[in-house]
Design a protein around this nucleic acid. Structure first.
Lengths: 135, 135
DNA sequence: CGGGATCCCGATAGATACTG
DNA sequence: CAGTATCTATCGGGATCCCG
């Protein structure tokens, strides 16, 4: 039964590692930042507060489900505030918190880096694709 | 045929939006940054160049497949260089390029932001989870 | 040692339809 | 208007086997 080799050891390592990852603030927030919709929502709200339907229109391709889900997560994390006005047709406004604004700033930094280095990445890709004979 | 309503308009919007997203450097590179393994690999290599097996050990929970896949992508994007030494047991070294180093810097910025604001996020979460009655 | 190829499964995004 | 519920298709990612 010394068959407890690669596979099992791997699994254990992964378990420990997962715990480590979960505990690590960086990775927790990296998930937020990297989320496809989060960046778009935060960017949209960075300009000015918006209603649900405004966001829905502004972001275009998003399904109601994902939009709500994204907004809920952001609300939970204290990135946005959700304000319900119980008028005849209900009205819900979303806006960035201070924390949300700082996230927007970070996203701007990422955006800047991306725009600055995109050319280089693009060239690298072409070079790679060309050099790679057949794959 | 005015039945071209919600669904179809949505689809078209999504198509346009997808094109927009694809063309946007930010989102392309955001994908790279946000990848779970990319950040770890880049961080690991930021310290010093490493061999495949070193990375495999350092990152622990990664499967060979994902490690290779991640490294290939990074190589293609000009983030890392791959150096093969055809000795008896093959030896492959990976190291960051200049571009890769700048990415490492960006990741550091993200990490700093995460560590700075994690407390606040954490508190926000607790507040939210407490206030939310049943959900 | 450093991978490539293949199979498979669980997670999840998104479409659709319904509700307060 | 602002969601919620459900169902399905897709796909990332792990395990496994094998090659150079």
């Amino acid at each position: 039964m010394a068959t407890q080799t690669a596979a099992q050891r791997r699994e254990q390592a992964r378990a420990e590692y997962d715990a480590f990852i979960k505990a690590c603030p960086t990775n927790q927030l990296l998930d937020r930042i990297s989320d496809k919709w989060v960046s778009l929502v935060v960017s949209a709200l960075a300009a000015h507060p918006m209603r649900y339907s405004d966001l829905s229109r502004k972001i275009a391709g998003v399904s109601p489900k994902m939009l709500t889900q994204t907004l809920r997560t952001l609300e939970r994390d204290g990135i946005v505030t959700r304000t319900v006005t119980p008028s005849v047709p209900v009205r819900v406004d979303y806006e960035l918190t201070t924390l949300g604004s700082s996230l927007a700033l970070l996203l701007t930094a990422v955006k800047d880096w991306a725009e600055t280095n995109f050319d280089e990445v693009h060239k690298a890709r072409e070079r790679y694709d060309t050099d790679t004979p057949a794959a």
